[in-house]
Design a protein around this nucleic acid. Structure first.
Lengths: 350, 350
DNA sequence: TTGTACGCGTTATCAA
DNA sequence: TTGATAACGCGTACAA
């Protein structure tokens, strides 16, 4: 039963060397060919030919063991299936691929135990660095990585891990959450809305907090109070739950949801409450995931792909020991107005 | 500049052995502890303690090199950000995690060159098997893998690779595409629709073909002809393009789109054409991705998570040389009726 | 019950 | 210009 498979043993560098009548190390040199090295074209050609004929492919395992680097990056995300994260992952994956790195994406489901397990696995596999896109705060695990000076890059999340012990060279790619929130509120205010509510994201996350801060500041500037409710998670379901609470009684005329998924939940709750969007209540989300266009949701655009790519590039630079000019990258957001926040304006006082 | 990082060298099995005053091999034995091996509890405890103290973690690299297996699976997908595939990936990832395997997801973007590159990378990394979820047909690359008896499992795609040279033991997890299509058409016919169109998926893919076959059969059974147009890709954009062609002139009263993304495109085209869904035209999709609920799309449900999980399990079994009872798994679909296909019925002859 | 010796496949370094 | 050697970190057959 066993041993049935894996018959045709893969050819190694020794096989090539033997057939080419050279030493294995010569084969290695030729195949990797460093500039500034002198090989006789003759042997070179012969080795190349043999290696092609044997379909020789070096073992990344052995090489990594020898080189002490794997050309592999790990990535921790709370949910692969989340459209926003998917965009980030894709960006990171492409940047990695371009530079010859492989990315291992790990789905933590925001469960600390899984996070820890994966972190262990990644380290056992000697990945050259870890990209952390999970939104949760305060990770001792991350703290310990940073403490060990293990290459880590944070994407779309901050950290409250003991600022004291860390330098200012932490790798960090995020967007202007406050600015985005301000843009959202400004947009709604410009449409004439005065009764604006905010369905905030979990206040256990940096993004959730920052967006709330921006919202509050903008509301104040417009001389508005605004109602704030908090969704317990960045999900449609929790957005729905929070919105129901908000819509009972005297509903606001406009709602800014902390992200698009939450906005979808708000949308569902509004419909159930017999409220039309945007006629009865205007709605703005955050992130601009592809589905936002599907339901004509106004939202704050976030360059997901770029976030992932930039973060991966930073991390690779760090892993390769290259100097990094800007370890912290702040990307701009941009409001995308769509149907969900269209009317109002003329009926300001309606 | 360099050498700055990676200072604190990770402790190896030798460090543990030294401090525990035993031979490295003893440490290895204790840590892996095979049943049926007799260790003195005393040394055992000592080694365990030391290893804990040093925070020793074995190198997966070295182990894999020695064991000739990596406990790693590769996965080829055309688009990580595709919601349907994301569900499959998630299922596969979880199954892998449960069994101690790591999954490397590769985004091929349906570009043959990338597919080939990734396949090479995965083999160099000695993955124990590859999960192929790309929908394209006829891959010589896949053919060669199969020929080499390298563990491969196909998910949501068939293969037209030379049936002759392959056994019947190919690993294959897919859904009943024909049955699903039939269910969709039956559903529309039951609503009273007589002018039913099908926006088919790319006929270069097995799923696209199977769904068309099912559609044709069902239409025929109902004594209908039906219009067929083909989308050039499984995307919103191509669905839109195909639908525009379909909707000019005398539009059908119902449309079955080969998958949800295409259905979204149809939806957009219908709206632009001033047609209301479902009042003027009923719509049914395929896959039941989460976004389908968002726009109230009727669709054929596909157990994405299960597909990924089952495929991964099959592949792991094969990689470990365990016998496989059912190498080909066919999962059932189920029609989910939502608003997009609601009315009609009473106005059959309207 | 534990130690010895070797090999997994590469590549860097030094010698020739 | 090429060869020889050692080492990366681990697991296992065999010996003690």
């Amino acid at each position: 039963m066993r041993g049935e498979r894996g018959k045709r043993a893969r050819s190694t560098i020794l096989d090539v060397a033997r057939l080419a009548r050279v030493h294995p190390s010569t084969v290695s040199r030729i195949l990797n060919d460093r500039p500034g090295l002198t090989l006789r074209p003759e042997t070179r050609a012969r080795v190349l030919a043999i290696s092609k004929r044997l379909d020789y492919r070096p073992s990344a395992l052995a090489r990594s063991l020898r080189l002490q680097r794997t050309l592999t990056l790990g990535m921790l995300v709370p949910d692969i299936a989340n459209a926003f994260l998917a965009g980030i992952i894709k960006g990171a994956e492409e940047a990695c691929h371009e530079r010859g790195y492989t990315l291992i994406v790990c789905n933590t489901a925001d469960v600390p135990e899984r996070e820890a397990t994966y972190l262990r696995v990644l380290r056992e596999r000697q990945v050259d660095g870890v990209l952390v896109a999970s939104a949760r705060l305060s990770d001792e695990s991350i703290g310990s990585l940073l403490a060990e000076r293990f290459p880590v890059a944070l994407v779309n999340r901050g950290t409250h891990v003991d600022r004291g012990t860390r330098g200012n060279d932490d790798l960090w790619v995020h967007v202007d959450d406050r600015g985005g929130a301000v843009a959202a509120i400004d947009h709604l205010a410009a449409l004439g809305h005065r009764r604006i509510a905010h369905v905030a994201g979990p206040q256990t996350t940096t993004t959730g907090r920052e967006r709330l801060v921006g919202t509050r500041a903008a509301l104040r500037r417009h001389g508005l109070t605004g109602t704030i409710v908090e969704a317990e998670a960045w999900s449609e379901v929790e957005g729905y739950r929070a919105a129901r609470q908000l819509l009972r009684g005297d509903p606001p005329s406009a709602i800014f949801a902390a992200n698009d998924l939450i906005a979808f939940g708000v949308l569902r709750a509004a419909r159930e409450a017999g409220l039309d969007v945007p006629e009865d209540v205007a709605l703005v989300g955050f992130n601009d995931i592809p589905e936002a266009a599907l339901v004509d949701l106004s939202t704050v655009h976030v360059p997901q792909h770029e976030m992932g790519a930039r973060a991966a590039e930073l991390l690779i630079a760090r892993a390769e020991g290259r100097p990094i000019a800007e370890p912290r990258i702040l990307l701009e957001t941009r409001l995308v107005a769509r149907g969900s926040s269209a009317p109002a304006k003329e009926r300001v006082t309606a």
